[in-house]
């Protein structure tokens, strides 16, 4: 894990595990249990944003070229985007490393 929780000792635990800083979900890497990742053939993409709407992690954003891509820090590899894309832009491939 790359977030700060792996360094936390029991003495750092707040009273009753209270979370005192907002936005702790943004530092939690949900992408580390992914076993497959999305790859793209953007030549077929019609920029309909269906993949972004369906992604349960909310991790698909438009890049500078206007293409919809997953942020792999959060993408958990569920494949919902690939299933929902009407143009078959997205192919799930196995994570090797």
């Amino acid at each position: 894990m790359t977030n700060s929780e792996d360094k936390m000792t029991w003495k750092d635990v707040e009273i009753g595990c209270i979370v005192t800083k907002p936005g702790s979900a943004t530092i939690t890497q949900t992408g580390d249990w992914r076993s497959r990742r999305p790859t793209y053939d953007f030549s077929k993409c019609i920029k309909c944003a269906i993949c972004q709407t369906y992604c349960p992690e909310g991790c698909i954003h438009q890049n500078e070229k206007g293409n919809y891509v997953a942020d792999l820090f959060y993408c958990k590899g569920c494949g919902i985007c690939a299933k929902e894309c009407p143009k078959k832009v997205i192919t799930m491939i196995e994570e090797k490393e």
């Binding site: 894990m1 929780e5 792996d6 936390m8 000792t9 029991w10 003495k11 750092d12 635990v13 009753g16 595990c17 209270i18 979370v19 005192t20 907002p22 702790s24 939690t28």
Partner: peptide, 20 residues
């Protein structure tokens, strides 16, 4: 002064929470 109480603890912090 908003805080979150009763949050979820993944395996990486649960042991620390119990020991505390």
């Amino acid at each position: 002064k908003p805080v979150t109480m009763g949050a979820f603890a993944p395996p990486i912090v649960f042991t620390e929470a119990k020991w505390a």
